[in-house]
Design a binder for these strands. Sequence first.
DNA 1: GTGAAAGCGCTAACAG
DNA 2: CTGTTAGCGCTTTCAC
Lengths: 348, 348
Amino acid sequence: MAATIRDVARLAGVSTSTVSRALSVPDLVNATTRAKVQSAAASLGYAPNKAARGLITGRTGNIGLVLPDLANPFFPSVVKGVQSRARAADVAVFVADTDENDLAEINLVRALAKQVDGLILCSPRANADELKRIAAETTVVLVNRLFDDIPAVVFDHQDGMRQAVAHLVALGHQRIAWVGGPVSSWSSEQRGSGLAAAAASQGVELVQVGHFPPYYDGGMAAADQVVATGATAVIAYNDLVAFGLLGRLHLRGLSVPADISVVGIDDIEAATMVRPTLTTVRLPKQQAGRLAVELLLSLLDEAVAPTPEPGGDSPGSQPDRARAEAKTNHRSLTGELMVRDSTGVAAR
Amino acid sequence: MAATIRDVARLAGVSTSTVSRALSVPDLVNATTRAKVQSAAASLGYAPNKAARGLITGRTGNIGLVLPDLANPFFPSVVKGVQSRARAADVAVFVADTDENDLAEINLVRALAKQVDGLILCSPRANADELKRIAAETTVVLVNRLFDDIPAVVFDHQDGMRQAVAHLVALGHQRIAWVGGPVSSWSSEQRGSGLAAAAASQGVELVQVGHFPPYYDGGMAAADQVVATGATAVIAYNDLVAFGLLGRLHLRGLSVPADISVVGIDDIEAATMVRPTLTTVRLPKQQAGRLAVELLLSLLDEAVAPTPEPGGDSPGSQPDRARAEAKTNHRSLTGELMVRDSTGVAAR
DNA sequence: GTGAAAGCGCTAACAG
DNA sequence: CTGTTAGCGCTTTCAC
C-alpha cells in the first residue's frame, strides 16, 4: 500500500494538516517544518491521492478527451497536443474513442463527466440539443466545431482554401471539384464554404461532388464522379479521402498530376509517404490540442476566481470591447498549404 | 452540482446504505425498495462518484495505458482495442504518450499509478530494473514485451516470419535482407530471431542490415544498404520502415516488386493506401488491446478473491501443470501474412 | 505557524 | 432486509 499523509505526518512529527499545507501551500508553514515534511515525504515516496483530494476540493486534476476515431491519423495528433499541454499542468487525460457513434459519444461524455474537471470534445457528432445540455452540465471545450458560445478551438479554412485555390489557379486550373465530407460534419461545411468563397473571388469554377465518408473508401467512391465533372483538379475533404481518390484514379489508369491534380486537407504524416506525395493544407493539429487544454484550464480557474464585475473607474469602451471578444472564448487556427507532387500544371 | 447518494436516499425515503446496496448489489434489497431507489436515482440523473467509491473500495474503476508514440499507427489500434474492452467493463482509460522517452515513461507511470487499479504498458522502453520496480508496486500488464513473469500479451513472430519467408521462397527469393528496429526493442529482437529461424529452416540466406528508427526515415536510411546486400527481397521491422524503403527505392529508380520485393510487419491501414500496396504480416493489434484489458481485470479480481491454495483431495499432477502454465499469464497472438503488390517473383 | 475537528461521497461492518 | 456507525485520504475552517 502506498504511503498516506498520515505516514508522512508521523515520520515528520507533525499533524496531517501541516503536511497538507507544506505540500500544497508551502508559504503557510515555517521553513524548517516544511523541510522536515518534504524530506519525510520524499523518503516515503509519498504522493497525494488525487481522488481523495478531489473529493474535498472539487477538482480532480483530470480532464477527458472525447473523439470520433483514433484510427483516423488526424486525431492522434490532437491527442498528442492535449497530452503534452496537460502533462505540463500535471493533469491526467482520459481518452475516449466513440467510433463515430453519436450515441456512444453522449454516453461516454456522461460517464466521464463525473470524474473530470472538464471535457474536450473533438469533432463532436452530437446534435445541437445534446451539445447544449452537455455544456450546461460540465465545463467543455470544443475542437473542430463551433456551436453557440461554447468555448472552442477551430481551424479557419478561409485562408487555407484561398491558398489552395491560388496554387491551382497559378497552375492553370479553371474548374475544380470539391469532394465533401459527411453531411452532418461542421468542418466539412466550413471547408466547403471557404472553398466556395475562394473560388468565387478568384474566378474559377467549383463543382461539388456530394458527401462522402471521411475515409479512404470515401475517396474511392468519389473518384469516378470527380472524373465525370471534367475538372482538372480536385480538393478532398481530408487526406484520407484524397488517398482514396489517388487509389481509384490510379486504377483507372489516370495519372496524377498529369491528368488531374489532387489536394488534401490535414497533412497527416502519410501524405509524404504515398506516391505521388500529396499536396495538402496543413492543419496545426497538435497546437489545437494544446490550445484546447489551455482554454479549458483557464475556464476552470475562472470558475474558481471569477473575473471582477465590470464597472471600474474609467469608462474605457475600448478595453470592454476587447474583453467581450475574448469572452467568446473562440480560438481560430489557420492552415498552410504544403505543395507536393500531386498537383501540377492543368491538363489541356 | 451533481446529485449525491444522499439526495437519492432522501427522495426515496431510505438510508444511504440502502441506496448504495440497491445500486451495486441489487439482490441484497427488497424488490420494491430497489424499484423506489432506482426510480429516484433515475429522476435525479444520479451516478455514483467513482472517486469516492474508490477511496473506500480501493478500486477506482480506471486503468492506465502507457505507450511510446500515438503518431505510430500501430498504437492507436491497440488503444481502440483497450477502449472497447474497457468500456464493456465500465472502466475508464487514462492514456499517456511518452514520446518514446523512457524517462517520461517512468514518470507517467508513477503519476498514473496512484489513480488507477492497474496499468497496461505497451512496448515499454523502461529497463529491466524499472520494470521490475513498477510491477512490484502496481498491477501491470505488458503488451509487446516479455519480461520475467510479468503478465503480458505478445505477438509470436515465429509463425508470421515463417509465412513471410515461405511466400518469398515460393517466389524464388534466395537472399533476404532484414532491416532491424531499435537496438533496445524487445520486439525487434523477436522479429529478427523468428526470421532467422525461418530462414534457416527454409534454407535461404538472411542478411541483417543494422538497426534503424521505427519510422519512415528509418526505412529511407536503410534502403541503400539493403540494395548493396544484393538481396532480392527485404523484410522491414515494421510497415513504416517498409514505406521508407519504398520511398527511397523509388527515388533510386528501382521498381518494386520487379527489382526488389518488400515485406512489412503490422499491417497498418496505410499499407493498402500506398502504391504498390504493401505485403505485410498482419498483427491483431486491437485484439492485443482487448486481451490486455481482460488479463488485467482478471488479475485484479484475483487479488480480491485469491485462488484457493493447492492441496485438494486428488493429487492431480496434470491439472497442476496446466495451472502452472496459465499462471505465467502470458498470452501470445500470431500474425498472418497479407500478400499484396510489393512482393513478386525474384529478380534474377 | 500549527493542531483538532469536521466532512467531501461513498461503502462496509454491525446491529437490529 | 434495512438503518446506524465508522472511516477511506485528504483539505479546510477554526481555534490556539
